[in-house]
Write a protein that binds this DNA or RNA. Structure first.
Lengths: 336, 336
DNA sequence: CACCACATGTATAACGTTATAGAGGCACGG
DNA sequence: CCGTGCCTCTATAACGTTATACATGTGGTG
């Protein structure tokens, strides 16, 4: 089916090895033969078989980015950045969706897909430290997000505790006192939800505000629907907060919708803030105040680190980086 | 580095071929040996090398979905469906982003990535019929979207003319008369923009309404920002429509934002409708009326068709399917 | 003129897998 | 007791590539 080196060699009247040398420039080739070979390549439309190359050389030039939610624009935006950076470094980035599924995450680490890529950038949310450590890893792995800590891999994430702390601090500064948190952790499996809950509690304590469990709404998933439903439940209970922090922008947008539907004015009656700075929040009504992680830094750093590992930085100790974030004030939060 | 068949064979004290037979069940293996082999596999943690398998067998079990805009939730939602369907059929789907870039689209067809996947679902927007036809394709290709027509490949899309026609018809039915179109085609390269523009014009004509060029705003890209800017320009020109059709939901949401910012009430003063039915439109304020393509059908059909080709339906003639769509009324359109 | 360095090309052994051909053992019918 | 067939298992040749070792020719140097 495909055109192979052998076909080119036959056409150009040279040996197979010479064609290979022309293609990858591994060894010098005379100008005349190079031209003949090149011409044959152009005529027959040859492109190297990646599987065979990988088998022989151990490299494909492919890396993968595995994310838990394809539907979350945060990851789509991150992926876009990572794809660009990978291309800049001569790699192709493939996306894989684990759909926040435990089995899918495990399969990613053990599975045969590992054999086809040179390295993996992985954002685990359902498996823990032990499970990551237990795997024998033959190709480089860079972790992103707060799913796992203290493992012997490069790890890039924002400080989730500090991020939600900063969000609450902003709400406190504009005079809010009854601050709800939508999208808290309801069981043990999503680490960043726990961390953001901690930041929420710490910030309340720092501001001298009481922690009211009835203002904290756990959700199982973290989409718009979950945010809306949780907010509705909170309102149904008769708890009207004067501010709401969403686990992420999607949850915040869901909460925003529930508040609007119930006739509460945002931001006058209730201020709303999210985390992620997805583009959607710049176009919602009202526009959404948010904590913006430095996606550019996360995406680029993850790719660069992975490529460095692939190209032989085994000796270097695993790197743990906390990328910066900043508060972006928009219409959804104003002083009381 | 990785564990290979040879390692398992050594451990279990059988031949390499026997291990292979245990793994793929190609030939019967005695119960006792099967167990020994299985045990060795479990102990050493073997997983087959996909590159080698591909090289030998010609199949990887990998298919790819190449989309023009990762940031567009429409494609993310479509991808999610396709990934599920692929998994159901025993395939893994990889996503690739062409970023609506001409070079990237061409590379996809010629490039060496083709060698690593069994087939490709492709939504081209920058290359045309001739360029698709000119490629010698060695692995199956299914096209989606309206980028290319009448090529000798399976092709799945909605009827874009009919879709925008339906949208305009709805606006007319609720009494709107000055209907703008944001996100028209401004040059030759995006086919679906042309088609949707045509549907707009045809529907106006059918309703006996004049076509006013000043109400038609072309954009180069089709995101929220583009919709907002185009709408602002329209307003700046003093053209206040009583309804707006966006090329897609993102453009419509951008237009919505521009209208809100300018103090116009949606839907009372201006009705807004989009195309795509992305989740975001179910949570915006106001929620967005839209033309909903059957994403489930498109995603599943594309994958099934591709898998059928991979598994040997070469004889069958190329299939062209137009998937259905329907109008979903939400808050952004009410009668005058 | 023998020798060596160097530049260029080639033959070939892997990489890990699967499919083909065939080897060995055993039971059964003639 | 031999031929036949079946049931297991094994040896081995590919798949397309790259790296190593080797072969050839050409020019320069002692």
């Amino acid at each position: 089916m495909g055109v192979s080196l052998k076909d080119i060699a036959g056409r150009a009247g040279v040996s197979l090895a010479t064609v290979s040398n022309v293609v990858n420039g591994y060894r010098p080739v005379g100008e005349r033969t190079r031209q003949r070979v090149q011409q044959a390549i152009d005529e027959l439309g040859y492109s190297p078989n990646l599987s065979a190359r990988h088998l022989r050389r151990g490299r494909t030039g492919l890396i993968a980015l595995a994310i838990p939610e394809l539907n979350n624009p945060y990851f789509a935006e991150l992926a876009e950045i990572a794809i660009r950076e990978a291309a800049r470094l001569g790699y192709t980035l493939l996306m894989e969706n684990t759909a926040a599924d435990r089995e899918a995450e495990l399969l990613l680490l053990d599975g045969s897909r590992r054999h086809i890529i040179d390295g993996l950038i992985f954002s685990p949310v359902r498996i823990g430290r032990e499970e990551v450590l237990a795997r024998t890893i033959d190709s480089p792995l860079v972790l992103i997000g707060e799913g796992v800590h203290d493992v012997s891999h490069d790890h890039i994430a924002i400080d989730n505790v500090a991020a939600s702390h900063a969000a609450i601090q902003h709400l406190v500064e504009i005079g809010r006192r009854r601050i709800a948190f939508i999208g808290a952790a309801d069981d043990g499996d999503r680490q960043s939800a726990h961390l953001r809950t901690r930041g929420y509690r710490e910030a309340l304590a720092a501001a001298g505000l009481p922690y009211r469990p009835r203002l904290v709404a756990p959700t199982h998933e973290f989409g718009r629907r979950d945010g809306r439903n949780a907010m509705r439940d909170l309102l149904a209970l008769g708890e009207l907060p004067d501010a709401v922090l969403g686990y992420n922008d999607l949850v915040a947008i869901g909460a925003l919708r529930a508040l609007t539907e119930a006739g509460h004015r945002v931001p006058q009656d209730v201020a709303v803030i999210g985390i992620d700075d997805i583009e959607e929040g710049r176009f919602s009504t009202p526009t959404l105040t948010t904590i913006a992680p430095d996606k550019e830094a996360i995406g680029r750093l993850a790719v660069r680190r992975l490529v460095a590992r692939i190209e032989g930085a085994e000796v270097t100790a695993p790197l743990t980086v906390q990328t910066p974030f900043r508060l972006i004030r928009r219409e959804s939060t104003i002083p009381v």
